[in-house]
């Protein structure tokens, strides 16, 4: 995972993207969450050797990026940064699966390479789907959506607390670990002897902070119950959004569009 400062920048960047103005930003969060989950479920439901059949699914990130006015390069960059993990995960497939499944001219492609490519595509699509969801919705709204979809309120509320104090703690942790690095010579001083007290101090400070937050809540009349003010409506636009994408996902899942297209072209244009 990224460094403390890098993570902080990432969070802030995503936060600013979610602050944007677009028809997709204005959609009710539940609709976006559900469509994203459905999208991902579609992606992973393909056969392990599926490659061409999955390509049309890129329509989802493409449309969402464009309509949501998100910077494609940034999202693509993040996906590329995370893809090595998918590469590592699929790395073994070509080693273990030697069967030739596909011939293009004289080129023989083994099942291992096909499934490896498939894993790469899966990785890109699922990672992209998740990032787009966050960039269009923002974390607090996703928490609210989770709650409205039936997640316990206590869980949703402490998720919000976690997110709120991520920013504070990443900064605090960054300061502490910088102070430690500045006083270490090379790797000396970065070992366990300085690590445990550093983490311990950070933990104690965090604990005291939690106590102060609780006091601040009490001072404003908190009695153990969290109230919500936001009312969001799952309206016609949301329904259209949800049903439109679901229909498309199912259609693409059932028919291999590229192959149909390819057959069409090769048969009618000799």
């Amino acid at each position: 995972m990224a460094s403390l400062d890098g993570a902080l920048l990432d969070f802030k960047r995503m936060e600013r993207l979610a602050d944007g103005e677009s028809p997709l930003h204005r959609l009710e969060p539940r609709a976006k969450l559900l469509v994203t989950l459905l999208f991902m479920a579609t992606v992973i439901s393909y056969d392990r050797y599926a490659v061409t059949a999955m390509i049309p699914l890129f329509i989802f990130p493409v449309v969402m990026l464009s309509l949501g006015n998100l910077p494609p390069a940034y999202i693509a960059g993040k996906i590329a940064l995370l893809t090595p993990f998918a590469v590592a995960a699929g790395f073994f497939n070509p080693l273990f699966d030697h069967e030739v499944l596909l011939r293009i001219g004289s080129l023989e492609i083994t099942g291992g390479w096909l499934s490896f490519t498939s894993i790469l595509l899966r990785g890109m699509l699922t990672i992209g789907g998740g990032l787009i969801l966050v960039a269009l919705t923002g974390f607090p709204a996703i928490c609210r959506a989770l709650e409205q979809l039936g997640a316990p309120r206590l869980f949703a509320v402490q998720l919000l607390f976690l997110y709120r104090y991520l920013f504070v703690l990443l900064e605090e942790g960054g300061t502490l670990s910088r102070a430690r690095e500045l006083r270490s010579v090379g790797k000396r001083g970065l070992g366990m002897r300085s690590f445990a007290p550093l983490i311990g101090h950070l933990l104690l400070r965090t604990w005291r902070r939690a106590e102060r937050i609780h006091l601040a809540m009490l001072a404003r009349g908190f009695t153990g119950e969290f109230h919500t003010t936001r009312e969001s409506r799952f309206g016609g636009r949301e329904l259209l959004f949800l049903s439109g994408w679901s229909t498309l996902f199912i259609t693409l899942r059932l028919w291999n569009l590229p192959r149909l297209l390819g057959t069409l072209v090769t048969e009618f244009i000799p």
Binding site: Y165, I213, M217, G221, H227, T229, R230
Partner: peptide
């Protein structure tokens, strides 16, 4: 420590809601 809600609005509304 005092601003613990996700937005300024929610935070200011916290007390009156209670």
């Amino acid at each position: 420590d005092q601003l613990f809600m996700p937005t300024v609005h929610d935070d200011v509304a916290f007390g009156p809601l209670n």
